[in-house]
Simulated assay, not measured.
Amino acid sequence: MSDVRIRPMVPADVPVAERLCAEAFVDLDRRMLPGSWPAPEPRSASRADTWSERTAHLLATDPGGCWVAEVGDEMAGFATSTVREKLRTLATYAVLPGLQGAGIGTPLLDAALHHGRGCLRGMLSSSSDVRAVRRYRQAGFSLHPQMFLRGTVDRSTIPVVEKVREGSASDIDLMDSLDRRARGAAHGVDHPFMLSRGRLIVSDSSTGSGYAYVDDDGGPALLAADNRLTASRLLWTVLADGPAATTVPHVTAANEWAIDVALAARLDLHTAGYLALRQMAPPTPYLHNGALL
């Protein structure tokens, strides 16, 4: 498409990008989810607000990594990316359903990834969409299949869990250290943002250290630890404190400890998408965040 214009994102673009993203992702779910599953629903108002707040945060911290594609005067796609120390991540990447495959995605992705051109490592969470997967592989990413576990927690399986406490801003140095060990880079400025919008639990004892953020639905939003025992302890705490029906997302084969915990809780195992990595092994013990990685 010859009339595509790629330009830097500005704050006024965030609400438009949210609506575009919601439309693109629900279309993707309709195409990818098994027919026996409930039909996907549009993003709720609260989720839209959370998405917009996170995107505004990324635009503030990494304006050079946030780009918009326009056709005429209308937004046709966008991409947001970050640099954290020597790790670049692609947070969100979407093109309007009717314009996918029209030559918009490649220059848009190139602009976002150029932001981290000096980084040693790269990381993104991909859907199963064949066009996106092909683009990421051609950009040099290794593709590691992701799993998720969903269902109703059997409360009788939950063990007694100790050495887990509520976290606070005083734990950021500890969390950054755990991030570096797991994925080679701290989350840095993302921790205050996540702290302001969700619950944090921490385990820091003689047997190991770790942390987990809990999402709005009561499931794990991000989890990192220095050993599997501590990671399992944190995940059991999230399941114990959360709702009966829950999801444990973003599990790679390197994190079988999470599969073991969730299966023991009687959740069902499924596959969806890929963790795409460049010059790094799958982080472990670690459950990545879909956007903040």
Rank of each mutant, 00 (worst) to 15 (best):
D226S: 07
A132I: 00
W257M: 02
T284M: 06
L20R: 06
R150Q: 12
A245M: 11
C119H: 03
D29Y: 10
F148I: 00
M32Y: 02
A276T: 01
S126R: 01
D154M: 06
D49G: 09
G198C: 09
T230M: 08
D176G: 14
T230N: 04
S232T: 06
I6K: 11
A281M: 08
W236K: 12
A276L: 01
P107W: 07
G167R: 13
V68A: 11
D179R: 06
A182R: 00
L275C: 00
G188C: 06
L20G: 07
D62S: 13
T207S: 12
G64Y: 05
S168M: 02
A254N: 01
V83M: 04
D27E: 12
G103M: 06
A212R: 09
A240T: 12
I201G: 02
D215G: 08
G140Q: 06
T50I: 10
A94Q: 09
A185G: 03
A225R: 01
D260Y: 03
L108F: 06
P249L: 02
G77T: 08
D129I: 01
H115S: 05
A240S: 13
Y213G: 04
C21P: 00
I158V: 15
E53D: 14
K163N: 15
R47L: 12
M194L: 15
G65P: 10
G98A: 14
M75R: 09
E41D: 11
R165N: 07
L96D: 09
V26E: 14
V68E: 02
D27L: 03
R197Q: 12
L174S: 05
A262Y: 01
R137A: 15
A224S: 15
R197L: 05
L239E: 02
R197M: 08
V4G: 08
R266L: 04
R165C: 07
G122A: 03
R30A: 14
G188P: 08
R54E: 13
L277P: 00
A281I: 02
R150S: 08
A169N: 11
P38R: 09
S127F: 01
V251P: 00
D171F: 03
L287T: 03
V248Y: 02
T50Q: 13
T271V: 06
E53A: 14
P283I: 05
T246Y: 04
L287R: 01
R278C: 04
V189T: 12
G101N: 08
